[in-house]
């Protein structure tokens, strides 16, 4: 939050991405793109991060760097360990070994709420909005530095009213941006799945993070909304926020990502600019197994890949709890026949 270069997000709707000071078009990597390559200006540097569940090595990343002020897509087949990697980076899970820094600060062993306060805010693959709070209350909950959140000040409204009004203003402009302004007073439980995704993303922005990590932000979002979501993400970059997101839709990745990192079986198998990565043999292997004949550079190749991906239903919607934290409080969207919640 002390980044001197940042401009607050919020009403910056009109920001033209092309004139943004963060639209640095120089090369991202220091050398040639290769798994684990160095970046000119990394915001996250992770080393030797490993996490296994029993015999399964869910994450086994030797070295990876996330470029600052860029949109980085983390892709990989279902079960590749993307969500687990998110959990590790944000302190929601503890690795067996490894270290990583965020803006030069060592984050290993830091608890999740501290990570968030340092400016690294994430969303969840299984959307987590508070259904029993109104949309605007959800938004305010995302705000940082609210003195009224301390117990002894909470009793005295005059100590926090001013900040509350500020937060409400920010929230309202974000809601307007995310086309949720009409739902302001509704309980979040009444929102559609896509609207929840939007709300969760908007809420994550309330704290004005320097890095947002979005786990499958597009999954389940109404196609009509996808385009505006993509614009939001590009807008974020324009306002100086670094974005790291997990996505399965190759169109989306090609459309907005500056950099793509591919994971498979816990490892980083490829990275580079979207176009190059799509032609990378390792990526094709990871996604298609034996189908080596597909050229992802050509439109038919991409279409073929997308066919394969859409057949794998889970890779689009995500398995219900793959890599997610124990969702004790989750209301699954579809009631399980035995009313049993995980």
């Amino acid at each position: 939050m002390s980044d001197p270069q940042r401009i607050p997000p919020g009403p910056a709707t009109g920001q033209d991405p092309d004139t943004s000071p963060f639209n640095d078009t120089g090369p991202i990597a220091v050398g040639p793109a290769a798994p684990g390559c160095k970046k000119r200006d990394p915001i996250i540097i992770a080393d030797g991060v490993r996490r296994s569940f029993g015999a399964l090595k869910a994450v086994d990343v030797d070295h990876v760097e996330i470029p600052r002020h860029k949109i980085t897509a983390l892709i990989g087949p279902n079960g590749a360990g993307k969500t687990t990697f998110f959990n590790l980076l944000t302190g929601f899970d503890t690795p067996d070994s490894g270290s990583w820094t965020f803006d030069g600060k060592n984050l290993a062993g830091i608890r999740p709420h501290r990570v968030a306060r340092l400016g690294m805010v994430r969303t969840f693959q299984l959307t987590k909005v508070m259904g029993k709070l109104t949309v605007i209350e959800n938004m305010r909950l995302g705000g940082a530095d609210q003195p009224g959140e301390a117990l002894w000040r909470a009793m005295f409204p005059w100590l926090w009213r001013e900040r509350e009004a500020e937060l409400t203003r920010t929230a309202d402009s974000l809601l307007a941006m995310f086309k949720l302004a009409e739902k302001r007073e509704d309980y979040a439980a009444s929102l559609s799945g896509g609207q929840r995704k939007l709300l969760e993303m908007a809420r994550a922005l309330m704290a004005e993070p320097r890095l947002v990590m979005l786990d499958e932000p597009m999954a389940g979002v109404n196609p009509a909304l996808t385009q505006s979501l993509l614009d939001h993400i590009k807008n974020l970059k324009a306002t100086g926020t670094t974005v790291l997101f997990v996505e399965h839709d190759m169109h989306v990745v090609r459309h907005i990502a500056d950099w793509v990192i591919v994971m498979a079986e816990g490892r980083v198998v490829a990275e580079g600019p979207p176009k190059e990565v799509m032609q990378d043999q390792a990526v094709i292997d990871a996604y298609l197994g034996a189908h080596h004949d597909v050229d992802l550079g050509a439109p038919e190749g991409v279409a073929r890949l997308e066919d394969v991906l859409s057949e794998d239903a889970e890779s689009v919607v995500g398995t219900e709890d793959a890599g997610e934290l124990l969702a004790v409080h989750d209301e699954p969207d579809t009631q399980d026949p035995h009313g049993r919640q995980p």
């Binding site: 944000t90 929601f92 608890r111 999740p112 709420h113 501290r114 968030a116 306060r117 805010v121 994430r122 969303t123 969840f124 987590k128 909005v129 508070m130 259904g131 029993k132 709070l133 209350e137 305010r140 909950l141 995302g142 940082a144 959140e149 969760e200 809420r203 994550a204 309330m206 704290a207 934290l325 409080h329 989750d330």
Partner: peptide, 18 residues
């Protein structure tokens, strides 16, 4: 508000820095 958030989903509230 934070408390009510926790009642529903602790991890979400953690991810917001509380």
């Amino acid at each position: 508000r934070v408390l009510k958030g926790i009642r529903e989903d602790e991890n979400a509230v953690l991810s917001l820095g509380k």
